[in-house]
């Protein structure tokens, strides 16, 4: 016993060293499991979100000019779409008898948005995250989709009371279900480390047709994103070793180094759809 104590005292530095190394390795390799329970180890905790919030109140003004231009562009395209839809609606209303066509309003109100500011952002790691200044108090829950004025940017990961951490689209571990607009070709969008403006759609079927410049949108197969939110545009086709599938190179719509204001998507049907899936799984 005495020898053991002597041994520990003599090599105490090594014990402390090994202890710290083990502690950091636990965080490093088991971090994702910790995060499900604890918000304190992420940038969404009270102290760091306050610090980032304070800095953001200064730096938030830096890119307003570019962001304003983006918003104007988006606004113009949406206005165009509204006019088109109104014309179509007018056309159909005259065709159908007004009594028999009672419009259901449930579909329109399915999605709700929470506006939030990005207070911390990173793009140069293989696994990138960003932090926003809204949390559980505003009804944000893990798994919700996040978009900015240009398109999809990420998925909510950890939620604190007044801040949340978002898994950025620029994260090698996160994949998004997408399709080419106006077609039914579904693929999975992944980002490879390096360029924050380029992502890849893997496992596209060999027979599918596409044109350079086609818009890539969300597929709507999950409750995270509604169908048809823009993600990027097709640049080119990448050769792969697999004969049956190929990969598409996609230019992302959002400018990730300059994220500022984002919207978190609340899906009112999420609980219902998820419980249906559970019901389905239980019966099979």
């Amino acid at each position: 016993m005495r020898n053991l104590l002597n041994f520990i005292i003599r090599y105490n530095t090594w014990f402390i060293f090994i202890f710290y190394v083990l502690l950091s390795c636990t965080l490093l390799f088991n971090g994702r499991n910790f995060y499900q329970q604890s918000v304190y180890l992420t940038s969404a905790n009270g102290v760091s979100s306050t610090v980032y919030g304070m800095t953001n109140s200064v730096t938030g003004y830096f890119n307003l000019k570019e962001i304003n231009a983006d918003l104007q562009r988006r606004n113009a395209s949406l206005e165009n779409e509204v006019l088109n839809l109104q014309n179509q609606l007018k056309y159909y209303v005259t065709m159908v008898d007004a009594d028999s066509a009672s419009m259901s309003s449930t579909h329109a109100s399915r999605f709700d948005y929470v506006i939030a500011s990005v207070i911390n952002n990173s793009v140069h790691h293989p696994r990138n995250y960003f932090t926003i200044n809204k949390g559980a108090n505003d009804g944000i829950k893990p798994g919700m989709g996040v978009v900015d004025q240009n398109g999809v940017v990420g998925i909510v990961n950890v939620v604190g009371s007044n801040s949340s951490r978002i898994i950025s689209l620029l994260n090698t571990t996160q994949h998004f279900s997408v399709k080419i607009k106006n077609t039914d070709y579904i693929g999975s969008l992944s980002w490879y480390e390096g360029n924050p403006g380029i992502a890849y759609i893997e496992e596209m079927a060999q027979h599918m047709q596409f044109h350079v410049g086609d818009t890539v949108v969300t597929s709507g197969f999950s409750t995270t994103f509604p169908e048809g939110i823009p993600v990027g545009t097709v640049i080119s086709r990448v050769r792969t070793t697999d004969e049956n599938f190929f990969t598409l190179k996609v230019k992302l719509m959002s400018d990730f180094p300059r994220l500022s204001t984002v919207r978190v998507i609340k899906d009112d049907f999420k609980a219902e759809l998820d419980s249906l899936q559970l019901y389905d799984a239980a019966n099979n």
């Binding site: 502690l23 965080l27 971090g31 180890l41 992420t42 940038s43 990173s122 790691h125 995250y129």
Partner: peptide
């Protein structure tokens, strides 16, 4: 690590 979301690195 806490500030930059890189657990343990």
């Amino acid at each position: 690590d806490i500030f930059s979301d890189t657990p343990g690195m």
